[in-house]
Design a protein around this nucleic acid. Structure first.
Lengths: 137, 137
DNA sequence: CTTGACGCTCAAGTCAACTTGAGCGCAACC
DNA sequence: GGTTGCGCTCAAGTTGACTTGAGCGTCAAG
């Protein structure tokens, strides 16, 4: 049952590095289960914590600190706020991502050689500039 | 016509800082139009460059370096590759974002107090762990 | 005529999330 | 019995995108 894995096995399986795992351990984010003569071993529970971290944290979705807080919070209210904030952030990011995607997709089929000269992008940009100086001259 | 803005005006209008603008200038990313006795002034064209930078770069969509390359590339092929790579990245990020959103939304209405104990999330995590050690024991 | 607001340069500091390097221990293999 | 492989610790380095600080110039107002 309680199969224990060495740090390099875990790193290999989760496509990460030994040093990153040591770093997580140091932070207390994913502590190794046991220490036999200073050597770290990981069991299933630890692996689940690790998978959790990678689910939240990868690609900069959530900072390690926030991830730690979500996992650590013994009471519901502590992480609920954080989670719903993060949901708001995600919605915003998704919106921006979609804007960027549209712009980039246009660029690919835009006949202009220099992106700065593209009239379609130019319109957005111009709108931005005008908006920036909307209140004063 | 050619209205010139001071660095602090520009910073205020674009909701950024004077030091960031100086940094962009130093990089050659958004050079100031003129220098009157060492003092920077920005015209419309410069503002358009700045808006462009913020459109691509904000929220970590694109690094400043990539942004620079897209704007600088005099030939189409130079930035086309970059742009389509970035489109791929965006698609991936969007997918991960959606995964994360689903997980977080579930958490908000999950009766469990500790996210690590949630069976719905647990299933994903478990799948990850198993997948990680799929090839060896 | 000094105080304040704004501008400048150049060097150094900051932050997150790691990585790298020095120097060590222990076990196995040739 | 040396050397390779994996593990360890602790301190310091890295990267990107800025920020901060020291020290200075310039001009308008009080």
């Amino acid at each position: 049952m309680a199969t224990l894995r060495s740090i390099s096995e875990v790193a290999g399986a989760f496509d990460t590095t030994v040093s990153a795992l040591r770093y997580y351990d140091e932070l207390g984010l994913v502590p190794s289960t046991q220490r036999r003569a200073r050597v770290r071993y990981y069991d299933e529970a630890a692996l689940r914590r690790l998978a959790f971290v990678r689910l939240w944290h990868d690609d900069g979705m959530m900072s390690l600190e926030d991830t730690a807080e979500v996992m650590a919070g013994p009471t519901r209210d502590q992480w609920r706020t954080l989670v719903s904030q993060r949901l708001d952030d995600i919605a915003q990011i998704a919106a921006r991502l979609d804007e960027a995607r549209q712009a980039l997709e246009h660029l690919l089929q835009c006949p202009r050689d220099n992106p700065l000269e593209c009239p379609v992008i130019g319109e957005r940009i111009q709108a931005q500039v005008e908006l920036a100086f909307a209140t004063n001259t």
